[in-house]
Amino acid sequence: MAVYSQASQAQVYKATAPMVDAQNVEKTFHRNPVLRGVSMQVRKGEVVAIIGPSGSGKTTFLRCLNHLEKINGGRIYIDGELMGYREQPDGRLVEDSESNIARMRAQIGMVFQRFNLFAHLTALQNVMEAPIQVKHMPRQMAEEQARELLRKVGLEYKADAYPSRLSGGQQQRVAIARALAMDPKLMLFDEATSALDPELVGEVLKVMRQLAEEGMTMVVVTHEMGFAREVADRVIFMDGGYIVEQGSPDQVINHPTQERTQNFLRKVL
């Protein structure tokens, strides 16, 4: 019988651990249950799309994944590490130290529906800020990297523009570059295109598609069924704080088995 040391067990687990392992996550806002036991996993390199009606808890779930929201029950492991909490010997969870939470968040990129670019910084400075502050990257290196990332999202020529001088689509692409500057192992997108004018949606989806092709692990909350169908490896349908149905895009979008999924898709397709 093989005897593993604790360390090697942890290493084996880490190597094989899913990027996201959410177990029975519960979240309540003022006695209003928003997540009622959500369990899901995301493998490394996988692109998971979350769809569902308004108010079903998609945003809340995504925010729990990087601990912008505290959870009331369950556990979230990111790449094998418990997110946001420490487990006490008696099994209870207590909130982790701020620096530890920050360290884990630094590895998770998040793109917001409303962009949230730093309004007092140029596009370039937005992308440079976190590597310099959090990773203590030398300024010159951060700038080179930022220009490279802006080129990648097609906005090198806007490096010195302030966010308010950029279109929504351009702002969102800068926001993606800003998240990528931390070299994340997981990217979370919360309806990245739903605050955009229709003609600007394509340019952002293109960048997201390119990221997916490069093998980035992504959790994408979206109303874009076309994108979910073409880019996602798996689609999850949420409603009322539960995962109602999940499977390949073809299964969930083209041949849903649950009535609630069918109703929802009838409305949006």
Binding site: A102, M110, F112, F118, H120, E129, V134
Partner: peptide, 29 residues
Amino acid sequence: DIGQMEAAKSLGMTYAQGMRRIVLPQAMR
């Protein structure tokens, strides 16, 4: 906007860093 602090945190900044680098410079105006 609290989205500024949330964006800072999502990039791995602490509350203090987010305040000093992101929120306070904008609040100064």
